[in-house]
Amino acid sequence: MPTRVRDPTLQNRLQNSAPNRERPHVDALIPPLLNGTALGALLLLAALGLTLTFGQMGVINMAHGEFIMAGAFIAYLTQLVVTSSNISIVLALPLAFLGAGLLGLLLEVGIIQWMYRRPLDTLLVTVGVSLILQQIALQIFPAQGVPVESPGWLDGQADILGYAWPLRQVFTIVLAALCLAALAAWLKYTSFGRRIRATVQNRDLAETSGIPTRTVDRITFFVGSGLAGVAGVAASLIGGTNSQMGTQYIIPAFLVVVAGGVGQIKGTVIAAWAVGIALSFFADWTTGSMAQVLAFVLVVIFLQFRPQGLFTVRTRGLT
């Protein structure tokens, strides 16, 4: 028979056990809706970079998930240098953008540039690159992963309609909105954005007009990969930071980009939030595993009726 030693730290809690405590009453629709919005924001962050590299350039970059991982590890490394997590997380955002962007640039210059117009080859090669990056991370960092401390100003909850909404979720949403706004403005209002759009719509004509399309390719790939790094910082606050973390984002991110309409940022935005909110409601009604199945089924059915996605644009890469 086991010993019956009581653990004093527990007794306080258990003396006020279930029946005596006041249970929070929350509308059944609010938690999944808010959780889903945050999950959608994380999906959007993971997918935004892909709308550039896959959507605009036609490169199926399976190492995008490992760029997310790189961003998360950069957040950790930043924390080693700047120990105050209140400041380091803010510093980590641009550093992760730069670090993951440079990784992307390296991939573009080293490998991808020989493979434009061959999307299936980019798929195979980048799967290999993703495995290599995972193994490198496994060799460098502790196998079980590293902790990225959340800043103090993200501790706690905001009260939304009686539901205690974690501030870290709010942070993800704000971050996704900022990245989205910056990317949209960059593409729409800057001369470089116009060059990207020109190259996407007609590469030959763009070249004839004096646009250096190779430079455009590189910078597009840099920015797309950099956005994955920013997604990594957000992911490091929500889940584990380890060599395998990228694998869980890559498939949903591609799914979101395809469902939204390849190359269309507004489609990606709608698809990301639709999938995120659907996942949370399904998880609320059924189980976490069934939610994944249902969400995928929903997207597949949608693509049966609308294979081109929500919105379409003529791209050079996939047609």
Binding site: A18, R21, R23, P24, V26, P31, P32, N35, G36, A38, L39, A164, P166, Q169, A235, I238, G239, G240, Q244, M245, T247, Q248, L279, S280, A283, D284, T287, G288, S289, A291, Q292
Partner: peptide
């Protein structure tokens, strides 16, 4: 509650824990 082994997102399930107390 169960979540697939390769998924980090537990937010909805944790909301259920909060409600079940």
């Amino acid at each position: 509650e169960y979540v697939p082994l390769d998924k980090d997102d537990w937010t909805t399930q944790v909301s259920k824990i909060v409600a079940a107390d």
